[in-house]
Design a protein around this nucleic acid. Structure first.
Lengths: 142, 142
DNA sequence: ATGACTGCAAACTCTTTGCACAACA
DNA sequence: TGTTGTGCAAAGAGTTTGCAGTCAT
C-alpha cells in the first residue's frame, strides 16, 4: 500500500547517491500517515511504534533530507517549534497562540510574494503564511 | 522632536494603568529610530547608547508590551529569532536563510487569510507572511 | 508609602553538533 | 570494504522566569 511512495523515495535517494535506510523509509511513512504538520517529536513518537530506538537527531536530519528531496515541507518555526508538512502544495497555516493547534489555510495566492522575492534577487524562495490568533475553544476558556 | 510619539505612548500606558518608565520610552524611541524590524539584541544595542545598563529581559518585556499596545508588531520567529517591527501596517517579510537579512514585502493582501481565520473561529488573528530564500550576495558566494 | 518595574542570573525550550559504532552499497 | 548514516550525549541559541532592590505614582 505504501510501495509507490517508498519507491519514489528510494529512487530519489539513489539519484542523489544517498543510502536507503529503514529509518528514512519509516520516517517518511510516518509523516505521510500522520497526514498533518507534525513536529519532530510527534514524528519520533509515531516512528517509535514501528522502529524503536530511533533518535531525535536522526528524525531531524531525515525530515530535513525529505524536505530537500521535496517529500516534505518545512514549516515554521510556528508556535515555537518547527513543523514538517506532508502537503507539498503551497498553503498557509493557522496557529493558535494559546494551545499551539495548527490548521491549514488555502486562502491565499503567494505568487506575487514569490515574484517580489525573485525581483529582489532572492533564489530558492518559498512563501510561508502563518496566521496567529486564538482558536475558538481557547477563546471560550478565557 | 519625539514628543508626539512619546505622548501617545504615555497616554496608552496611563490608560492601562501602567507605569511610564525611562526604559519604555527609550526602547520605544529606539525601535522607531531603527526604522526596521529589529531583534531584541539590536534594540538593546541601540538603547544602550542612551540608557546604559538596560537588560535584555527588560527589552523583551517592553517590546512585548509595545506590541500589545499597538506600537510595534511582533514578527516571527523569522530566521531563528523574534523580530519587532515599527511598521504597523500589514506587510510581509523576506528572509535570507543564509545571512538572516530581512526585507519588507508589500505584495500581498492578507485579508482573505484573516477572513478564513475568522471563519474558523479564531479571534485576534494576525497574518504573517514570511518568504525564505537565499539573497543575491549569499547566492553569489555559493 | 506601595506596588509595579528593572536588573541580574539562571533555567528552559527546541534544535544542532561531535564522535564512535553499525550498516548500507 | 569503505563510506555514509545512526545513536548517544552534550552543547548552543534565543527566550523566558524568579527574586530582590528600586523607582514611578
Amino acid at each position: 500500500m505504501h510501495s509507490d511512495l517508498d519507491t519514489q523515495l528510494v529512487e530519489a535517494l539513489r539519484g542523489r547517491g544517498q543510502r536507503v535506510t529503514p529509518q528514512r523509509l519509516v520516517i517518511h511513512r510516518a509523516l505521510r500517515a500522520l497526514d498533518t504538520h507534525a513536529s519532530a517529536e510527534e514524528v519520533l513518537a509515531a516512528v517509535d511504534d514501528r522502529l524503536p530506538g530511533v533518535s531525535l537527531p536522526t528524525v531531524y536530519a531525515t525530515l530535513e533530507l525529505l524536505s530537500e528531496l521535496g517529500f516534505a515541507l518545512r514549516v515554521g518555526p510556528a508556535g515555537g517549534r518547527v513543523l514538517f508538512d506532508p502537503r507539498l502544495d503551497d498553503h498557509g497555516h493557522l496557529v493558535c497562540s494559546r494551545c499551539g493547534r495548527v490548521e491549514d489555510i488555502d486562502a491565499l495566492d503567494t505568487g506575487p510574494a514569490l515574484a517580489a522575492a525573485r525581483r529582489r534577487g532572492f533564489t530558492h524562495a518559498r512563501a510561508g503564511l502563518v496566521v496567529t490568533g486564538v482558536c475558538g475553544p481557547c477563546g471560550d476558556a478565557a
